[in-house]
């Protein structure tokens, strides 16, 4: 028993190299939409260069928490956020923090693919251009190509970069959105159910992609698919009714959760 546990820990360490640093940390995060409270004091750490999966039944506050991490909630007038959220130890809700810079560091991919109604090239080039990341056209071309390659889309679109991004298939559009997020070289990528509109093959491609992106980026992903959470994430956090029920290594969460609600949810007994 003891041996087994140690072997498990060793295995985990081998997977991750050494103990990862904490990239983002939420402490006592509360969110109100008007009078209605959506999150009740969530404490959650997001380790660097790992995939953290947020799971839980519908309406439990996964998206709400995710959107706190790059302050997308700022766009909702009735939304108030409390508690502390830090990125590399800096409070992101500090008035000194520039939201634009924060969102460049913490990119987001949405549930529904939302490419700009512009060419594929323009979709990718927009971010680097507004942030002034490239000096000339050649550099920009290189960024576009490498982003599309990282998003495993290059081979499919390299001959039609000037065609509108909205003309791609749903799966391609979602990978385009991922490429668009990568193009500004963020440190963290937030994904809110990125595969919910995709077929199994496209889903597999995106999952593969997430696994690769883990080398360079910290990823937080919301998913309703337990298999997906198990496949792509290293850590899993379970939400319920606005509370963080439990969080831990994915292996442990799926084999031996501490909380009965997690067990029930994972085995499909509610949610």
């Amino acid at each position: 028993m003891n041996m087994l546990t140690e072997a498990g820990v060793e295995q985990q360490l081998a997977d991750q190299g050494n103990t990862p640093a904490i990239k983002m940390r939420g402490k006592g995060v509360t969110v109100h939409y008007g009078d209605k409270q959506a999150l009740f004091g969530v404490d959650l750490d997001v380790p660097e260069k790992q995939v953290t999966a947020l799971i839980g039944p519908s309406g439990c506050g996964k998206s709400t928490f995710l959107r706190c991490l790059n302050r997308m909630n700022d766009t909702i007038p009735i939304c108030r956020v409390g508690g502390d959220i830090t990125l590399d130890g800096e409070d992101i809700y500090d008035p000194k923090i520039d939201v634009v810079e924060l969102r460049a560091r913490v990119g987001m991919v949405f549930q529904k693919p939302n490419p700009f109604p512009k060419s594929i090239y323009e979709n990718i080039a927009y971010g680097p251009r507004i942030h002034g990341l490239t000096k000339n056209k050649a550099e920009l071309d290189a960024v576009v190509e490498s982003s599309l390659r990282k998003a495993a889309l290059w081979d499919e679109v390299k001959d039609r970069l000037q065609e509108p991004g909205t003309g791609l298939s749903g799966g391609q559009q979602q990978r385009l959105c991922i490429a668009r997020a990568i193009a500004v070289s963020p440190e963290v990528i937030l994904m809110d159910e990125p595969c919910s509109a995709l077929d199994p093959i496209a889903t597999a491609k995106v999952e593969e992609l997430i696994d690769e992106l883990r080398q360079n980026y910290t990823i937080v992903i919301v998913t309703h698919s337990m298999q997906q959470a198990a496949r792509v994430s290293q850590r899993t956090a379970m939400f319920h009714l606005g509370y963080l029920v439990e969080e831990g290594a994915t292996d442990k969460m799926f084999t031996n959760p501490d909380d009965k609600r997690t067990q029930d949810y994972i085995t499909g007994r509610f949610g």
Binding site: T75, R103, G107, F110, Y126, G127, A181, A183, V184
Partner: peptide, 15 residues
């Protein structure tokens, strides 16, 4: 204009 367009732009750090 669909809100998703605004979110997309804001999400990659457009002001």
């Amino acid at each position: 204009v669909p809100p998703s367009i605004r979110e997309a732009a804001l999400g990659i750090g457009a002001s």
